[in-house]
Amino acid sequence: MSVKVFERPKALSDVIFHYCPGCTHGVIHRLVAEAIDELGVQGKTIGVASVGCSVLAYNYFNVDFQQAAHGRAPAVATGIKRCLPDRTVFTYQGDGDLASIGTAEIVHAAMRGENITVIFVNNAIYGMTGGQMAPTTLIGQSTTTSPGGRKPERAGRPIRMSEMLSQLEGAAYIARVSTHNAAQVARAKQAIKKAFQAQADKKGFAMVEVLSTCPTNWGMTPREALKWLEENMLPVYPLGELKTEPGLPEPSAVKTTVPTREVKTE
C-alpha cells in the first residue's frame, strides 16, 4: 500500500511553470499555495499578478486573478479588497514592480493599512526584460544597465523596502525571508502563512519580502546563485521580522540563524 507524502497544493494549477531552471519563483509560488490551502481560503482568494517574470502568475494559481499594470498591483488589490472585504486578496510582485515603478502604490497601500497580503520577490535584478539594474541591485553588481557594477555615485544604493515600509503605522506585518536553503524555505513558508493570517485577522497591510535568485541574468548556475544570494544579498538585506503588530503570532518561528551582519553605510 502506498502512502501519499507529497502532493501539489490545491491552490496551485497543474501546469508547467515557464520559469528558468534554478529560479526560486516556483518555490515561492508553492509556499503561497500551501499557505492558501492550509488557511482554507482557496475559494475566496483573489490574486493580483504584476509585471515582470511573475507576469503569468494567474496561470499558476488555481484562484481568481487580476493582472495589473506594472507597479499598480497594490492599487488594484485595494480596489478589490475594499469591494470584497471578506475575500483574501494578495499581490505577487517583483522588485522592479514593487520597489521601482510601483513605489507610490506600495507605500500608500501600506500607509492606508490596506488589509492585503503582499508577496515581494527580490532578486536584485530585472529578470523578464533581460537583466537590467533594479533599485535593489547591489553595489558592484553587474547588470546590462550597470556594466562594470552598480556605482552609488551614478545609481544610488540598494533600496530596503521592508525597512522602509515597517516605519508605517498601517503596516501590521513585515518580514524578510530567503530561499537559499531548505531551512530558510521552511521559515519563508511560516512568514507567508503569517502574512495571510494577518489578513484573515484584519490586522492591516502585510508583506513578506522573499530573497530570490536569478541564475540566468546573474550568469550563474542555480547552485552558484543560491550561494551568491547567501553571501552577498543577506548582508544588505538582513532576514527577520521587521514588524509584528500585537496580536500576531509570536515572531519566534521566523527567527533566522543566518548572521545579520551590519549594513555598511560608509
Binding site: 499594470a69 492599487a75 488589490a77 485595494t78 479588497k81 475594499r82 502604490e105
Partner: peptide, 11 residues
Amino acid sequence: VSAINMVYGAA
C-alpha cells in the same frame, strides 16, 4: 495612476 488602477480592481 493609482486611482484608475483601484477602479480597475473594483470593476
